[in-house]
Design a protein around this nucleic acid. Structure first.
Lengths: 188, 188, 188, 188
DNA sequence: CATGAATGAGTGTTCATTCAT
DNA sequence: GATGAATGAACACTCATTCAT
């Protein structure tokens, strides 16, 4: 990918994290990226397109991070714990500023089949985890989306509040939270 | 509260739900509320203040709704279930347009001690639920905030996706989700 | 008509005459009119609307000027000569800067029935002249539009070139030109 | 003339006719001409120069067309009629797109002696016609410019309105208009 | 010679805010 | 108190022009 395009995306992510959705203008992005305002329009159709592309860019980054060090051979629980911690770490390493600040969800999303398939592909390993869990009888028989909301979403939510200083989460509390999430999706 | 001020807040909520954050201007709010543009500035310092106050306005509405039909005499589980469903219903009854559309989180939030205390007061009954649960040994020994993220947050998250059509949640699945959230916070 | 609106129209006309169609911006108009840029948009929907309204504004001014001192009792030739000279004078008195500089024709024109009827009404006296001339057998049996192109258009064209200094037209030459235009439309 | 320069001029004329003065940019011209944007600046100083040169380019095309099939041996009236019809035909054959659409007059014109001499040379045959007519006593003793405005200008004006659909001109009306123009410049 | 990415001043337009009435 | 006309800085976006390759 062109050097300039990357710089523009990174600048946008940074500014979005700093000032939020409503606080950034194309001129600010240009300045932060070290390019002229007009240059942005060589790489992105308009502001909407820039934000859409940033969404996809981050989504694929996130998908990669989440499934890092996860292999099909690992036992279910270990896989789950790894993913949960990957999400947690992402926030705490200031690795994905937008995620940290909860601005990512607000990014304008492209609708439609295409987008859905992209997300399915990106999060294939997550779905595989849930599918195996249900097949083996360990997990509750619920849609993957619901399982995800119950077990992984809290990781992001907690991390966000932790990093924003809303409240502190100790290592012990964190490990307990992982267990709680596991409890949420497993049969009892 | 002054009639005009209420009308302005309601107009803002309606427009925010209809057009999103980007799509509203002070003139639109004025028109919708049936007042002159300048009048808004009698009741709100500036646009930011209007949005902040709207945040608090909605927050207190939400707090009321969540604890509706919840009394201290009900058993823990029933109280929890009622709150969970109150959150769920709020979204599905188009009762809180901003919540439904996920615009509420984007509202600029005041930071700081003051805001924290307001939220504590509003959600006192929720905290009481968790405190009792922990005291009786039924709940895990985790901070209330963490318990909330594990058990109530998924209700809002699920409802949002359900109402936005991201995916469908049947009545059975919903009840199973409530059980799962209960599993997350209870001891095993 | 609002004072500000008039000032904006006059400023536009002046700038259009000075810099031509392509040389003016809304900010220039605002500055020349002594109003803020945003004020223009209280009176005109957009730049196009401003130009359209200027067109109509000038058209009605021109129609008034052309038929000044023309009464139905005057003999045909005197009426014709008066109109011809009214056009001529308009240019030479710097009375209608846009006409002088031939920028008027370039103004974006509204199309359609409505516009046509407006023009018919404005130039009713001109049409009446041609109709009477044809009825009495003095004029050639041609459409009023054609008679107009043959006899009055040259007045504007000549005046434009005279005032722009393309060439000089003496008083005698001007009177001869009026006779020539009369020859063009009368029977021989 | 360089192949590239010709292509640029033709592209400009085409785009100007299609989109009007406002609708063309140098990048569009470059694309239409099949050259890089920077290349235009090898052949033209700037946009103004391109437009000026296009003006002259078209002017010389027009001059050629007007005097087509006109020879010194033809009687005055036949020469006049031929020129009048040449102008008429140019518009109706979609031969000179800019003329047809009235965009030609808007082209920025160079002022001054030099420009005047160019036009004199281009329209030498037209001047010759008027000079002979005056010498033989057939034409009125008026400057060639005035005679031209009285007799040839109406052809262009009529053709423009005809082609733009402002009103329809039948073949009979057109012939009558030629006679009327002849009447305008001849002695009676 | 030719290219086309890059520039940045400029465009038309919006809108939070003010203030004379 | 309430109004709404007026403001002008800011916005997203364009485009004539340059210059390293």
């Amino acid at each position: 990918m062109s050097d300039k395009k990357t710089r523009i995306l990174q600048a946008t992510e940074k500014l979005l994290a700093m000032y939020g959705f409503h606080g950034i203008s194309m001129q600010m992005v240009a300045k932060e990226a070290g390019v002229a305002a007009g240059t942005i329009y060589r790489y992105f159709e308009d502001k909407d397109d820039l934000l859409h592309q940033l969404h996809d860019h981050i989504l694929s980054h996130v998908a990669n991070k989440i499934t890092q060090d996860v292999s099909d051979e690992m036992p279910l629980k270990k896989r789950f714990r790894t993913m949960w911690l990957n999400i947690w770490k992402m926030a705490n390493q200031e690795d994905a500023p937008l995620i940290n600040r909860g601005q990512f969800e607000n990014l304008p999303r492209r609708q439609g089949q295409e987008q859905y398939q992209l997300e399915q592909k990106l999060f294939a390993k997550v779905n595989q985890l849930f599918d195996e869990g249900k097949a083996s009888g360990q997990f509750k028989q619920l849609d993957n989306e619901i399982l995800s909301v119950l077990s992984l979403e809290p990781s992001a939510c907690l991390a966000r509040k932790h990093v924003n200083g809303v409240f502190n989460v100790s290592d012990d509390a964190r490990d307990a939270a992982i267990e709680a999430c596991w409890d949420a999706i497993t049969q009892h």
